[in-house]
Design a protein around this nucleic acid. Structure first.
Lengths: 230, 230
DNA sequence: TAGTGGTCTAGACCACTCA
DNA sequence: GAGTGGTCTAGACCACTAT
């Protein structure tokens, strides 16, 4: 049990919201008043209330005061761990197999995403991620070698492209798209599942500042679930 | 452009990480030192650095100091809006159709999730969510009427069960599971798609304090994508 | 225009943990 | 034991916006 003041106050405020003391959409007393009630500095109360606001539970406006959010933001935070960790968490042994690795001129859709010039080549990779030697996920990736030239010297025998990038590129922002798809022939073969099976896919593009690094699509073995909490 | 001190400092720190000034896994100067460098109070620098830590970009430990995270947490925050809003964002007109509504004794798996006694009934609902009169998502839901008795009096003609719950229950925590599935006969009929199509599903259970409220499974029309950013 | 949250400061003490 | 982040305070000024 964490028992800082701001944590405890946050919990107390949350309880008062849950109990209905402050109804949905209703106004909550001001910071000064509550700080006096809790016997703390306004700064401390502010931190607790700000935390609730960041979670979308209350809406705050200068002069307008703080209100209980009438429709709390349903925001789920999903962890996207390294595939190796994901596999090892299930107790299985991780492995990976690079099925394809070549320099190619990408199709227009990818070229645009990676912000490449026409006819400029990029590194194209197919990787099968294994859990106890059974296919766990199939990865199709394009890497912008202009941004990450060192990647050309990597054998990817010990660590996967996925992991190499995470551990080599300082910090990158990115877009993610989750979807469900019926697998095509190539993917079904790589995953060892019947064609048409429903697979969970994650399509991710990352960049560093203004420089595009990589775009990747990952198809998980049927039965895969992405868990989270609200 | 937001230009508070802590926001600006956070951005500056992030830039210094990206630039490689502080390498992956490397140690960052202490708060006191950086505060002096930026000419601000330690509190302000602390807030900026804490924000980076919350995003998983740096790892902080007392005495150990602050280090650039060697493998930044890949954490995506996904918004789970009301279905109505989700539909309206696409420019379509929202509608919903309650296909089934009855009090039933739930199967054991659901009974356990809702924490009900054996033979205790719960409200069972089938709802089809429509976008311009075309099925957009199919919802199967169980509601614990002991926790939310008022729901029995609701007609759900104007607003959907989904929305009624969001607007009536103060705040709830919950679990969410995202998956991909080949639709079964009943769902394919409700969505008007061929049996076996890959659909994106969200399975969500919510509760208020220790009281379970509802558990729901939502199947989206094929082609649905959940977008997010890192 | 006045009230409310947003931010910042300077200083203090504490808790954790590395050496 | 000592260094570093975690937290708290009391007070101040500012920015936004409801009335």
């Amino acid at each position: 049990m964490t028992s800082n003041s701001h944590t405890a106050i946050r919990a107390s405020l949350l309880e008062r919201i849950r109990s209905g003391e402050w109804p949905l959409g209703g106004r909550i007393p001001g910071e000064a008043e509550l700080a006096a009630e809790y016997g703390c500095a306004r700064t401390t109360l502010n931190r607790a209330m700000r935390s609730l606001a960041e979670d979308g539970l209350v809406v705050r406006r200068r002069k307008g005061g703080t209100r209980v959010s009438p429709a709390p933001a349903r925001r789920a935070t999903v962890e996207i761990p390294l595939l190796r960790e994901q596999v090892e968490q299930t107790g299985a042994c991780y492995g990976h197999d690079v099925r394809k690795r070549e320099m190619l001129v990408p199709p227009p859709s990818i070229r645009q995403r990676l912000n490449l010039r026409p006819n400029q080549k990029a590194l194209f990779l197919h990787t099968v991620h294994l859990a106890d030697s059974v296919p766990f996920a199939f990865e199709v990736r394009w890497v912008n070698t202009k941004t990450v030239p060192q990647i050309m010297d990597e054998p990817f025998t010990d660590i996967s492209v996925n992991e190499w990038l995470v551990r080599s590129v300082p910090f990158s922002s990115g877009d993610v798209v989750f979807a469900a798809e019926n697998v095509d022939a190539g993917t079904s073969e790589a995953l060892g599942v019947p064609e048409g099976s429903a697979v969970f896919s994650i399509d991710r593009t990352t960049w560093l500042g203004d420089d595009f690094i990589t775009t990747m699509k990952l198809f998980y073995r049927p039965g895969f679930e992405l868990r989270s909490s609200l």
